[in-house]
Nucleic acid binder design. Structure first.
Lengths: 191, 191
DNA sequence: CGGTCAAAACTGACCCGTCAGTATTGTAAA
DNA sequence: TTTACAATACTGACGGGTCAGTTTTGACCG
């Protein structure tokens, strides 16, 4: 007897991620996904309810992975400043390690008009927001709108990855974002 | 009646923008666009080569509009600081005035014909980059990667509009972004 | 071990609804 | 009468999803 094979699921996932990252949703053919994953088309429907479900899973899995890493390494014994730095570096590292995820998110939209903003995404934003709030509470910094700043972080990474100079390196990106958060465009700072 | 009616073209454009902003590309029916625009389906094909061409035009027109407004109001007699502030405020205002554009941009680079959109975007980024470089040249601030910072600006606006708290107001968003650029999360500044 | 079998996984040809795009018709204005 | 276009009918490709048939797996038994 075969159990739904986790290996196979991941093979499909990995393959699909590449395709969905390359072209928009409506240009991805499930026949192509199946072929590329060396799997029968029907098999896709064993692991995923529909094309949309497959797509959503890709993003969900990715976001959950980041979440896991974050909640594992951002502990409360860190100073707010260290927590923010770690958060940003970790997310940037992740973006470089999984070049497809941020491309995928391009089309993360309300399918069917439902305002079904992926719960996973909300969770991630919530996590970042907590980091920001903690810093504000402890007077490490001030932020009139932590929730806004929270969405900024993935937004910055996304725009850099998608539209930034292609030769920009991981460290440079993280440094630039941190710089922005620490003292904006100001020459130097003491902090 | 004349053939190339600019009014009609804009009616189609405005209507289509709403629909494309509401649902993903593949869920928009040209029958619906035509009906909503009170225009015959065939008429769409007088003004646009294809569904994709229509979509592309929406974004292209939008980006060009921003560009025009920017290049008109950001003159070299402004101090770098003022230029940056104006740039950001103008873009935020535009985003609020055209709530659909940034939703549309979700998939700006996902089409076969994406290349035709890139020049417009590049132009916009290039413009912002110049503003940033001018500030750096004149010692108003420092920026190791102006090109990166340039893509940050639309990225920040986009993420706020798409994923930020829905009740955030225009001024608050612009202020928050400016704050970030001026002194990051630091409490206060003199600048 | 080897054989038997059931259950589940897998496959891919095929079905069938859906639209993008086109052609036709009706009509109102000029 | 002619022009322009809304309305509407039409069509054909296309691709998501299905399912009858095939293969694989592992449990149980002698």
């Amino acid at each position: 007897m075969q159990r739904p094979d986790e290996k196979k699921r991941q093979k499909i996932t990995a393959t699909a991620a590449k395709l969905f990252a390359t072209r928009p949703f409506h240009e991805v053919r499930l026949d192509d996904v199946a072929a590329a994953a060396q799997v029968g088309k029907g098999t896709l429907y064993i692991y995923f309810k529909s094309k949309e479900d497959l797509y959503r899973s890709l993003i969900h899995d990715g976001v959950m992975q980041i979440m896991e890493q974050l909640s594992q390494s951002i502990t409360n014994d860190l100073s707010p400043g260290d927590a923010l730095e770690k958060t940003i570096r970790l997310m940037v590292t992740f973006a470089y390690a999984h070049p497809y995820l941020f491309e995928l998110m391009r089309a993360i939209d309300s399918f069917k008009g439902r305002e079904s903003l992926l719960p996973a995404r909300r969770q991630l934003i919530g996590f970042i927001e907590q980091v920001l709030r903690r810093g504000a509470d402890q007077q490490s910094w001030t932020d009139p709108h932590p929730q806004l700043t929270a969405v900024f972080i993935p937004g910055l990474i996304r725009s850099a990855i998608l539209y930034g100079p292609k030769d920009i390196k991981e460290k440079a990106l993280a440094d630039q974002i941190l710089r922005l958060f620490r003292h904006g465009l100001q020459k130097e700072t003491f902090r």
